[in-house]
């Protein structure tokens, strides 16, 4: 337990976070770019074309990972919200806000790639498909959190209100997904099918796993970058930020 508490205690220090994330970021960025480059090259150039959709299916290597990460990102954001509500850790507030922005961007990316994929497959830019509609609602949920945060003047109140909202969202997301699924099966137009085959061939699937991992790491990198920017902004009056800005570097914390 003491290890956990000391970790939580350290997490409360923006300066510690800034220092440790400086060490992690190069590695994480390298891994993220590497995995994405590997997965995309494999998926775009070497995976076999789809029997029905030909080459247009290859956008799956961007679309599906973005959709995965956007959904997981909401739960990560709500997790930060719980930490913020229970332990009042400022860094969790920062993570909540950063997570909302990055998550909304990922959701938007999934929607746009889905729309681009829809054009050759279904002949239209937009289809009221169950998964697309759920993604759209998810985007609205993210935008709601972002709008609520901006509406408050006090950062602390904003973060705690957003934490409550994102928790309400986590209870609702499974219900929304199920009801949209059900709504779609009720209204499903006969001409549309999402994929040619029910399961993917391993040759197509393996690159997808690589890009999904790459997207998770990309999410982490973007999250850390946004968090670092906000930490600097929040702590702009403190000594260590001043030192950093004047190029004196970031010394280890006294006693840390």
């Amino acid at each position: 337990m003491t290890v956990v508490w000391s970790f939580l205690h350290k997490l409360g220090s923006p300066r510690w976070f800034y220092r440790i994330s400086s060490q992690w970021l190069p590695w994480l960025s390298f891994l993220a770019v590497g995995l994405l480059a590997w997965g995309c090259t494999w998926g775009l150039a070497y995976a076999p074309p789809d029997a029905v959709q030909g080459n247009s299916f290859r956008i799956i290597y961007i679309h599906v990972p973005a959709a995965f990460v956007s959904l997981a990102g909401y739960y990560a954001m709500a997790g930060a919200g719980v930490v913020s509500l229970v332990w009042r850790i400022k860094l969790a507030d920062v993570a909540l806000r950063a997570g909302a922005g990055v998550g909304a961007a990922m959701t938007f990316c999934a929607l746009v790639t889905g729309s681009i994929w829809g054009k050759p497959t279904w002949g239209t830019w937009w289809v009221w498909d169950a998964r697309i509609t759920s993604m759209l609602v998810l985007l609205f949920l993210y935008l709601g959190v972002m709008a609520l945060y901006e509406a408050f003047e006090s950062r602390e109140t904003a973060a705690r209100a957003c934490a409550v909202l994102s928790l309400v969202g986590t209870v609702n997301i499974p219900i929304i997904y199920k009801s949209v699924d059900w709504w779609y099966s009720l209204h499903q137009p006969a001409t549309i099918r999402l994929t040619g085959a029910p399961t993917m061939h391993p040759d197509m699937f393996h690159p997808l796993v690589v890009t999904i991992l790459g997207f998770y790491l990309l999410y982490l990198v973007l999250l850390l970058l946004r968090m670092r920017a906000e930490v600097l902004e929040r702590e702009q009056k403190s000594r260590w930020v001043e030192d950093l800005a004047l190029g004196r570097g970031l010394a280890a914390e006294p006693g840390g």
Binding site: V137, F140, L141, L143, G144, L165, G169, I176
Partner: peptide, 10 residues
């Protein structure tokens, strides 16, 4: 309305 309408979907 921005916060609540998405939650009204089900």
């Amino acid at each position: 309305s921005l916060l609540i309408l998405p939650l009204y979907v089900p």
